[in-house]
Computed example of a mutant assay.
Amino acid sequence: MTDSKKLRRPRTDATAKRRRLVTATAQVLHEQGVERTTIADIARAADVPVGNVYYYFKTKDELVEAALAEHTKQLDALTARLDQLPDPRERLKGLIGAWIGQRDTTARYGCPTGTLAVELDKRAEGGLDLAVGQVIRHLLDWVRQQYRQLGLTDADDLALTFIGAYQGMSLLSSALRDPEIMTREGARLIRELDALAQD
């Protein structure tokens, strides 16, 4: 093995380990919530020794911040794919389709960002409540942009209603353990988008 390969491998291993920790954190926090999740839970899910976690993240709050960054990254990847569609209405329908595609997970655990927002809002310290709000605002801004591209003057209100509908159907689906709520409410949102096309 050459010296350059020796130098690259530890960095690559460290990057992969950190990536596993971030991915595991996002998943475990979604499934268990912040307060019930321990560093050991995250280490186990990432297949990383507990002591190694502290090399990458000094506190659980740093892991929560990394999970929020992961949510933003996943959202950016989804909206980038949707942005390839030429029509903003079809982009919004694609977003609904992605939500419906996650209906079983949502029925079990709720919306990953929404559940974090509710939980973090109840904490007295840390500022993570503001950070999770930024993830939601990021999606809200993208939805608002789609309505504006449709030429609608009330794009702000429509975007709030759209995201509110998603959070509502996620909450009800989870509370009632009924994934079909996502399907039915998603179909209703699509009908509303189609009706906008006829105005």
Rank of each mutant, 00 (worst) to 15 (best):
L171E: 02
R188H: 14
R137H: 09
Y56A: 08
H71I: 05
L172F: 14
T23D: 15
T161E: 08
Y147H: 13
P49N: 04
A117Q: 15
Q145K: 07
L152I: 14
D61A: 08
Q167R: 13
T161M: 08
V50E: 13
L150Y: 11
A66T: 05
G151W: 10
D199M: 09
A24H: 04
R191Q: 15
V53P: 03
A24I: 04
R18Y: 11
T12Y: 13
F162V: 05
Q74N: 12
L68C: 03
L171V: 10
L95M: 13
T59H: 03
R123C: 02
L85S: 06
D129N: 14
D121P: 00
D13M: 12
I39R: 15
A195Y: 12
Q149T: 04
T25I: 08
Y166N: 09
T15A: 15
G186W: 06
I96Y: 02
G151F: 08
Q32V: 02
R103D: 04
G151K: 02
L171A: 14
G168P: 05
T23S: 13
D83P: 01
G133M: 02
P88G: 06
G51K: 14
I42M: 09
P49T: 03
E119T: 01
L130P: 00
G110Y: 03
G127R: 10
R123Q: 01
R103Y: 07
E185S: 15
G114L: 07
I42C: 09
L29N: 07
L139Q: 11
V22Y: 12
D61T: 01
D61Q: 02
A124I: 12
